[in-house]
Amino acid sequence: MGVIDAAVVITILAAAVRIATPLIFVSLGEIITEKSGVLNLGVEGIMLMGAISGFYTAYTFDDLWLGMLAGVLVGIIFGAFHAYFCIFLRTDQTITGISLWILGLGLSSFIYRIAFSGYFVRPRISTFPRISFPILHEIPWIGPIFFNHNILVYLGFFAVPIVWWLINKTEFGLKIQAVGEHPKAADTFGINVQKIRFFSVVIGGAFAGAGGAFIPIGSLGSFVDNMTQGRGFIAIAIVIFSRWNPLFAVLGALLFGTMSAMGTRFQVMGIDIAHQALLALPYIATIAALVMFNLSKKGKRGGAPGSLAVPYEKE
């Protein structure tokens, strides 16, 4: 394995940071959603919808920011959809989430076929350009790994402390936690449980939409059927792994990113492992991380919101 030298490691880790970005967006949003007591398993579908609407808008208007905005808006709409069903109609959150995923999966491919029928060459957009941070990008290792990316990557990482602050330091965050832990108590406080939950799910949807739009706009430059490849579900695993803490969610996302980048890189390098095994690497790592995490979790609550996935009904 003498082919693995510093340059390769840096390439892999830099790719890991880029791959981690959509996961960071989605898991941040899912943390907010779940903190309020609602489980949204449909983020995978919302990501796909964000990806297609982001790509279509960016392609048609030739404006990448407009594309991101479209992704976020569609995320909000689908988040509101999930929120309406789960909170006001009190449907089963698991089933509603899975329906949302399947809806997003089919609808995104359908829209792509309608919008881009008759193209012989796969339509492409130019992605956001890389911005090298002055000075910082010259630091050995750290520089090329973290400070040589496009603006969206920086935005994603910047959002992490913001979301942490939102949840833990603001009044809105306290309310989110309150309705997720003990909605009845929150109700006696005079907090509108359904309203807070609704906004939390919608915000989560916006993040998922942004995460989905990132993939064509910030990374690949084109749309492919089911291009999220289960990353919405990986994000949900990351949320559990992080104990609903945005700061740890970054670590989870980077772990997945690294595994994913390694898999791709090893294929390119022609290392003699079945490529299916390499592709499966990040998913296996996620399962292993979850298992290890749950085995090591000693006693106590494990950080899950007390009323996660339990609809609230006034008596």
Binding site: K169, T170, E171, L174, K175, A186, F189, G190
Partner: peptide
């Protein structure tokens, strides 16, 4: 702090 439905400030 949030026991009265909140203080209507961003940061309590």
């Amino acid at each position: 702090v949030i026991g009265k439905g909140g203080t209507r400030k961003i940061m309590p």
